[in-house]
Simulated scan of single mutants.
Amino acid sequence: MNSFLSFLHSQFFVTPPYPRTTWEGKTVIVTGANTGLGLEAARHFVRLEADKVILAVRSLDKGEKAKQSIEDSTARTNVVEVWPLDLGSYESVKQFSKRATQSLERLDAVVENAAIATPKFRLLEGNEMTITVNVISTFLLALLLLPKLKDTAQHHRTTPHLSIVCSEVIFHASFPERKSPSIFDKLNDRASSRMLDRYNVSKLMVALVCRQICSLLGDGYPVIINFLNPGLCHSELTRDVAIPAYFVKLFLARTSEVGSRTLVHAVSAGPRSHGQYLSDCRVTMPPSFVLSADGAETQKKAWSELSGRLEAIQSGILENLRNVAK
């Protein structure tokens, strides 16, 4: 009940502050940037004088329309670039990361906003689709871009950020799959799949893995990594959900622009936010499960399984963590 009351208070009585900090001279990548939170966050970065804002999108046509919308509203051109990125394809993630690493002079912030929420079970790249997109590809992209972020820190004397959009639904994930011999194998089992909880579970795994990665990196790491809750917002994320959920959104949801302010805040939140859960633009306590002994064990288990899968997708990727840790 407490988490529900907190949710209502946030939705009705808290308005994230309008972003005003300059991004002059900086380069930002925003995934899922053709609509909703990603589009509005990208619009803020352009408005705030970013030198380059990359819209990482699955549909180039939609990306170009988003670019035009941003240029029309900000009166700034030659800032936004549209790059293809399909989190349903590991090869697409690798190609995107290679392009960023080789062609960008600097990379100051990555906002991993793209995600899916679907009640339909489907395997994609050998794993259930929600887990492929929201967890495996999300961290594949993160680890592949970390060396570029650290290089920017070293050569430009700045502190880059990598922020992953999480959700308040982590407070409601039951996650019994964690008790199976293999979390991922259990999540890939169609017969026992619990798809109504799958999005919640995927975001809880994001929280756990972010915390584990940051614990491995230790103090003094030159890139700030955090995960954030933008609140319930109007977006295309829940386009596949049932009608009752639609009406809940209709009455309770923030606008995409208001929600996007939390994304912009997260990539400028500073060292105190490293490894932390952000909500309403402040460091907030995650669910009690995350902080429990069970949560700590699950955190290590989820990372152990995920890191093995990432290494199988891209041999040597874990060196990106070891090489940038100090």
Rank of each mutant, 00 (worst) to 15 (best):
V79C: 08
V46W: 11
G275R: 04
R47F: 14
N188P: 12
F184I: 12
I54C: 03
Q11I: 11
C281W: 04
G231C: 05
H172C: 06
S256A: 14
A191C: 14
D240T: 00
P244Y: 13
N320Q: 07
G308W: 11
L232W: 13
V264W: 02
V53W: 06
T132S: 08
P181G: 00
K26I: 11
K65S: 13
R106L: 06
R157C: 13
S59E: 03
I136C: 10
K67Q: 13
A56F: 02
T255F: 11
E40W: 06
I54T: 09
C166K: 02
G63P: 03
I29F: 11
F227W: 09
P181H: 02
T159R: 07
I136V: 14
G88N: 13
A191Q: 09
S304L: 10
K249H: 11
G295R: 02
A109F: 00
M195K: 00
H274A: 04
L107T: 08
A115D: 08
I225K: 01
G32W: 08
S268I: 02
F171T: 00
R47A: 15
T284E: 15
C166Y: 03
L217S: 04
F175V: 01
M205C: 12
D151H: 14
W303A: 01
A266G: 03
Y221P: 00
S73M: 11
L187D: 05
D151W: 12
M205A: 07
F7P: 00
S97W: 10
S193G: 04
S235A: 06
T15W: 14
V165W: 11
A115E: 00
S288T: 13
S6M: 11
A42F: 05
A42P: 02
A56V: 10
T132F: 07
H274K: 05
F171Y: 13
F12L: 15
K301S: 04
R190F: 08
N134W: 09
H9C: 11
E177V: 08
A266L: 02
A142C: 10
S163E: 06
L143F: 06
C281A: 05
A242T: 08
Q11L: 13
A293C: 11
E305C: 07
A266S: 12
T132C: 12
F247H: 12
Q102D: 15
Q276H: 08
L149V: 05
I131S: 00
E305H: 07
G308K: 01
F247K: 08
K120E: 09
K186T: 15
K62H: 05
A109E: 03
A242Q: 09
G295N: 05
A33H: 05
N127T: 03
L216W: 12
T238L: 12
N226G: 04
E24L: 14
A50H: 04
V46Y: 04
A56M: 02
Q102H: 12
A269E: 02
G218M: 10
A153V: 01
I224K: 00
T27L: 00
Q154F: 09
G126S: 03
L217C: 08
W83I: 08
L216E: 15
H156S: 01
G218K: 10
W303I: 01
Q95A: 15
I225E: 01
I131E: 00
G231M: 05
A41C: 12
T130D: 01
T238Y: 13
L143C: 02
H234G: 03
S256F: 13
T22M: 03
Y277L: 09
V79E: 02
T158F: 04
